[in-house]
């Protein structure tokens, strides 16, 4: 292991390291700790400029129920769920199949199709913005969660195909060959042999795509407007405009918006971390 494991160092170094660790973490997360503290402050603290001292009172329940009762935050959150969950399912369904096709079959243009997905995955969003907005308008699904989710499914398919294809390539080929000799049909090979083996990749991608889509802000502002369809990222931004200097409410809203991806990440952190490096190369 590099650097030298701390157990092999002197007792003094070990003690220093163990003190430095929590200290570094607090420093790293200081902005978030401040937000969490502010989200329970009273309005009085905010007007008095008490941002960084100890709160004079803890208004946890008041602030958090305030943002849900007096603002459409609840419906923004629900919209985010309605965009994110179908996107995760749709993307995984499409990319399991396309990844399988690109990994298992040799055919003319295989590499070309694969590179199309990879290259498309990297383009700046702005080059797609005007046509995609226009397309969505023409299909009559502008300002709906459907319109937003459909675009996300298509775009995320690029990255997920890359990921799935590399994952399937690392599986033993003999399995497929053996099944073919037995006369098993191609779609049954996919469904009964490959798909069960892809479980770790599916889990990793589900977490990644969930985080990406939940946190998307650009497409939310381009394809939706208003509380009936906007997800929480765009909603938070418009609420921020209304809550001028009401930092305790902004903070509480930020915490609520950040919670779902954070919760998913902690529940499935093993898959998440395994997924990131697998994504781009193998």
């Amino acid at each position: 292991m590099f650097p030298t494991p701390i157990e092999r160092r002197s007792a003094a170094v070990q003690r220093l390291y163990k003190t430095a660790l929590p200290f570094a973490m607090v420093l790293w997360l200081l902005p978030l700790i401040a937000v969490a503290l502010t989200s329970v402050r009273s309005a009085g603290d905010i007007t008095a400029g008490n941002y960084w001292g100890w709160p004079t009172s803890f208004n946890l329940v008041e602030n958090y129920s305030d943002i849900f009762t007096n603002t459409p935050l609840g419906s923004y959150m629900w919209n985010s769920v309605r965009v994110t969950v179908p996107t995760v399912i749709g993307t995984l369904a499409l990319s399991c199949m396309s990844g399988f096709a690109l990994a298992v079959y040799k055919f003319k243009g295989n590499m070309l199709v694969f590179f199309m997905f990879v290259a498309g995955n990297f383009v700046p969003f702005q080059i797609l913005m005007v046509p995609v907005r226009d397309l969505t308008l023409q299909m009559g699904i502008y300002n709906t969660v459907t319109g937003l989710a459909l675009f996300h499914i298509a775009f995320q398919t690029g990255f997920c195909t890359l990921f799935m294809r590399n994952f399937i390539r690392a599986l033993p080929v003999e399995l497929i060959e053996a099944a073919r000799v037995e006369g098993v049909k191609e779609w049954r090979i996919f469904w009964f042999i490959i798909l069960p083996l892809m479980r770790p990749a599916i889990a990793a991608l589900a977490v990644l795509v969930f985080t990406f889509i939940w946190n998307d802000y650009f497409w939310a502002t381009v394809l939706t407007q208003g509380a009936e369809s906007q997800p929480v990222t765009a909603g938070l931004y418009s609420l921020n405009g209304q809550w001028v200097a009401a930092w305790h409410l902004v903070s509480a809203g930020s915490i609520v918006a950040a919670l779902p991806p954070v919760a998913i990440f902690f529940l499935l952190q093993k898959h998440f971390i395994a997924g990131l490096p697998l994504g781009a190369v193998k």
């Binding site: 298992v104 079959y105 295989n110 080059i127 005007v130 995609v132 397309l135 775009f155």
Partner: peptide, 27 residues
């Protein structure tokens, strides 16, 4: 075996073309 890849690829490729590749040229 030559038809299978086409069928497996079709949904993803069509969707991706429609929402990502064509819009680049339209832009």
């Amino acid at each position: 075996r030559s038809l299978a890849p086409v069928l497996f690829l079709a949904p993803a490729v069509l969707f991706f073309m429609f929402y990502v590749i064509f819009p680049i040229f339209q832009s």
